[in-house]
């Protein structure tokens, strides 16, 4: 597992049905591009988050492919329509096979 990876998500605790809510996500990750070399001239192997998804009650909201040029600690902010009370589930996929998950409940209010 890559070191120091910690997902963070900011979602409102409640929202009105039909509203577009703003979702912010940030995962700390070094996003090693695979282009750099270490002091001895050896290539530092690529190690990035290559995919990010958000699902709401099992239905996909956003599915992102990340490429090596994306900077360290990738941050995503997007709007999602809020149809009913439920759970937003966030998943990040690491090159090394690790999967980081986070979930947030949003109530009608």
């Amino acid at each position: 597992m890559a070191k120091g990876v910690k997902p963070r998500v900011k979602v409102p605790k409640k929202a009105a049905v039909g509203d577009a809510i703003t979702i912010k996500t940030l995962i700390s990750h070094k996003m090693e591009s695979g282009q750099r070399k270490d002091g001895d001239g050896n290539v530092i192997p690529r190690s990035i988050i290559n995919r990010f998804t958000c699902d709401f009650n099992g239905q996909n909201v956003i599915d992102v492919t990340l490429e090596p040029a994306i900077s360290t600690n990738p941050y995503f902010e997007f709007e999602a329509q809020f149809p009913e009370a439920g759970e937003y589930k966030f998943t990040w996929y690491d090159d090394d096979g690790d999967v980081y998950e986070e979930a947030k409940q949003v109530a009608v209010g």
């Binding site: 910690k6 900011k10 912010k24 940030l26 700390s28 600690n73 941050y75």
Partner: peptide, 12 residues
């Protein structure tokens, strides 16, 4: 604080 990436290091 959520957007301030300096806070990642504060967490660490």
């Amino acid at each position: 604080d959520f957007e301030n990436q300096g806070m990642i290091f504060v967490d660490q």
